[in-house]
Amino acid sequence: MQIEFKNVTHSYESNNPLSGLGLADVSCKIEDKAFTAIVGKTGSGKSTLVRHINALLKPTSGEIKVGDRVITPETNNKNLKPLRKQVGMVFQFPESQLFEDTVEKDIMFGPKNFGIPEEEAREAAHKMIKVVGLSEDYLDRSPFDLSGGQMRRVAIAGVLASDPETIILDEPTAGLDPVGRKEIMDLFKEQQQNGKTIILITHNMDDVANYAETMMVMHDSRLRAVGTPKDIFNDQDLLDKKLISLPQSAVFAQKLAKKNFKFESLPITINELTAEIKQQIHGE
């Protein structure tokens, strides 16, 4: 499903002048089956942007197309189920999407809500809990008696269980330990290879470099740049204005460049970095 934003503006509570614009005139296309990362400072509008895709927020002006569905300021809350089935979202704070008294019921809620029979939903729960790195023992526990990282995993399992076509992840790895983070990022990549569209909000530039094909940069409620991670991380103007930070490999390359190395463009992954260093050392 292709997603398209056309001149989308969102102002939170128009009667409260202190809450400024959430989004200002954003236009973009998010490609079907691609892995897109959204980056930007705290409060730049990332969450506001993605909440329009499943109509949790409606635009104040402009429109969003999700497949053949069009969301406008007039869109009401009726008949949103098909859209919500297609577009799954892992929220920034996982607790906000956990509410049942056991983990199993919690993961089953989505599929059941979308009309999947009880037994199938249960199977999905048993499968997904393992996929996110927890054992089946957790299914009987209350989701509120879990550690932060465990809750995060349950929230992710709940979204995957409904098998949405598009998966939106709002800082999904905040709170995961690094080993868990890598496992979960690999899982999202695998989902993409199985034909899903992945939209990831993150502050981890290494994850952007390693996993994303397209990168969008938000700043002050505006979309300031779209491109491949390689191009964006090499965009001097964005760097000068401090709109982006660099992955570790690029930072390291900059340090080498101050000595006797030369980089035509900054490497953004470890593999690119070491390949580049090898070439220069061996004088090819």
């Binding site: 930007g40 400072k41 705290t42 920034q92 932060g148 905040a174 709170g175 502050h203 530039m205 930070s245």
Partner: peptide
């Protein structure tokens, strides 16, 4: 601080 900067951008952190 219990992961108190986990949602800050790298500069903010």
């Amino acid at each position: 601080m219990d992961e108190s900067t986990s949602m800050l951008d790298p500069d903010g952190r």
